[in-house]
Design a protein around this nucleic acid. Structure first.
Lengths: 199, 199
DNA sequence: AGCAAAACCATACAACGCACGGTTTCTTTG
DNA sequence: CAAAGAAACCGTGCGTTGTATGGTTTTGCT
């Protein structure tokens, strides 16, 4: 065997690093925290940390990957339809501002194809859109959403709304993201098919 | 007099810096470019550049401020209603990916109240929402938008949509931001007042 | 002419991410 | 149960970054 997390001690340290780094990144921001600080908090030297993650961005990518895995698992376990889950997630995000900012910062930086987290974010959004558009299609089948609507466009739109509201919320915490998301979702429910076909 | 751009030579250099820095930032990204590189391009030493802008972030804030001024001026001069202008802006943004990424990166970073561009972004979004919600109200008065709609919420939502679509577009340039924005705007036009009141 | 401020520079500093070349600790296997 | 080899770590140094200090030169005004 020849992997980086093959010894029990190693996998434990690796996860401790991920946990610690997430906490610090969420609090001080990605740019604002040095690898030395993370290493110190883990009782490691800098090279000791870099044994696990070849670069700062690689560490970041690993954090996001892990975070998304657990998030997906829990959100998938939750009950309720797509709209309710979306609303719940949005309101949940309002309680972890550090994470929200981390994701916002990164999704912008990751647009560079050379960024280590690029592929991650690309497939993340592809997944999001696919899942949500399927959920919207199910709603159409159930009759709670107008049949004429383009579910794929709508999926992208709703996700964009959630992301965009986060930006405005970060700049002005007085804004209620959940209310806005709910409002659009409610609005979508009131769209009548006949009007759409008349276009 | 005791200002930094008071001599003619100074104001010219200052604007050259803004122009040059915008170009480089747009191409290499904010983090990816060093002040030394910008200075060299302007035939200045590093301290020579820092005479005009006390910090890298201050330079960035100045760039955004100037950019917004000119953008506002041109968009205000354009004809058409609010929806058309919004659509035009969105499609225009699709041709300056560097700038879009710059704004995305910064709007996230500027959520920190200590960030030099914080106030700028806060009032920027306040302005946006105010302008757009007024435009929406005018549409209501003209009868092209359902009267029961909450124009302030809608303004925030539409702006969020534009921002959010930019994120997805940056990660996957195959996505057409304009189409999505137009789709939601079109959808808003089809909402019937009666349905809203029935809720 | 002279003076104050703007315009600009040389140098230095601390901190950063990262690379190199080690040594120690642990597991597996012959 | 040793020997081997990889994982787990560390000391040190390199190049670059943003920024601070303390200047000198240039410019415009009175």
């Amino acid at each position: 065997m020849s992997e980086k997390g093959s010894y029990p001690k190693g996998v434990a340290k690796r996860e401790e690093i991920l946990r610690t780094a997430l906490a610090i990144f969420s609090q001080e921001g990605y740019r604002g925290t040095s690898l030395r600080e993370v290493a110190r908090e883990c009782k490691l030297s800098l090279p000791g940390l870099m044994h696990y993650f070849g670069s700062k961005e690689e560490l970041l990518a690993a954090i996001l990957r892990k975070r998304d895995e657990t998030d997906f698992a829990t959100s998938h376990a939750e009950e309720g339809d797509a709209f309710k889950i979306l609303s719940t997630i949005t309101r949940h995000n309002a309680q972890v501002p550090g994470l929200v900012q981390l994701y916002a910062t990164l999704s912008a930086a990751a647009s560079d194809p050379n960024h280590p987290a690029h592929e991650f974010f690309v497939s993340r959004y592809q997944d999001f859109r696919a899942r949500l558009s399927q959920a919207l299609a199910e709603r159409q089948a159930a009759g709670t959403l107008a049949a004429g609507l383009d579910v794929e466009k709508l999926a992208a739109i709703v996700i964009a709304l959630a992301d965009g509201m986060q930006v405005q919320w970060m700049l002005d915490p007085g804004i209620d993201m959940g209310d806005h998301v709910d409002y659009l979702l409610e609005l979508l429910g009131t769209v009548s098919p006949s009007r759409l076909l008349a276009d």
